Amino acid sequence: MALVLREEPSEGVKLLRLNRPDARNALNTALRKELASHFQELSSDETARCIVITGDDKAFAAGADLKEIVDDTPVEIMNRNVRRFWNVISSCPVPVIAAVRGVALGGGCELALHADIIVAGENARFAQPEVCVGVMPGGGGTQRLVRAIGKYQTMKLVLTGEPISGRDAFTMGLASEVVPDDAVLDRALEMARKIASLPPISIRLTKEVTLAGADAALDTGLLMERRLFEMMFATADQKEGMNAFIEKRKPDFAGR
């Protein structure tokens, strides 16, 4: 049975569904490998304009599969090299939307944090409960959270392990939108179709410079932004987009 189901619900939109329902989509090595393989393929797929990742109505992902690692030594944990799977996702040039219903715990919350946009259900549950089982976040939770929601909200999550609702996640800046649980995937796909309809070079470079500039000095980020803005005037899509706006018609973006 495939651990990740891949669909194309509309042109340019790729949907990845985590598929370990009996384990609440816990992230074992096999699932991580399969997910990373899909992201690797889609990163070089010119037809991929936006990726949506989701689980099911009960779980986005319930974190690492503890049964797989409970008896590991530090060297065995190091040799698993889980970081390589995360790196494939974080380096994906295609915009990624996480559609989160149910629980997003530990590694599941960290997986959502690798997305560019998070659409959360009102009753979704986000948490970093690693301290409750004697460890700590290891997939970027401490670092990505503090950049997303600041020190004090992050410390509350990582030091207590307590869950927060999708609505609370939105309030603190962890989610882009919060919607009724049964509308999460539809809203994420609607947003993905909108992104997929826009000029792909512009979208990819906008994602690239936003992420690169986040950890750079402001002047460096502004310089990168300015140079990429200037470069966009070498694309056919810039001419098409501006002329379509002037002529009051729908643009036809070709990705050139």
Rank of each mutant, 00 (worst) to 15 (best):
V4A: 02
S10P: 11
E11K: 04
G12T: 03
L15P: 14
R20F: 04
A23F: 08
A23D: 14
T29V: 07
R32K: 10
L35F: 10
L35E: 12
Q40E: 15
S43T: 06
A48G: 10
A48H: 10
K58G: 14
A59W: 08
A61F: 08
K67S: 14
D71H: 12
D72L: 08
V82P: 11
R83F: 09
F85H: 15
S90H: 11
V100N: 10
A104H: 07
G106S: 15
G108E: 05
G108K: 02
A120N: 02
N123S: 04
Q128Y: 12
P129W: 01
V133Q: 15
M136I: 02
P137K: 01
P137L: 00
T142L: 07
V146G: 03
R147K: 09
K151P: 08
L159F: 06
I164E: 11
S165C: 02
D168S: 06
D168P: 09
M172D: 05
M172A: 01
L174H: 07
S176V: 00
D181Q: 02
L185V: 00
E190S: 04
S197L: 04
P200D: 05
I201L: 05
E208P: 08
G213E: 08
A216L: 06
A216M: 08
M224V: 07
M224Y: 10
E225C: 10
R227E: 14
R227M: 05
L228T: 13
E230I: 00
M232L: 12
D237V: 00
M242F: 10
A244L: 00
K248M: 03
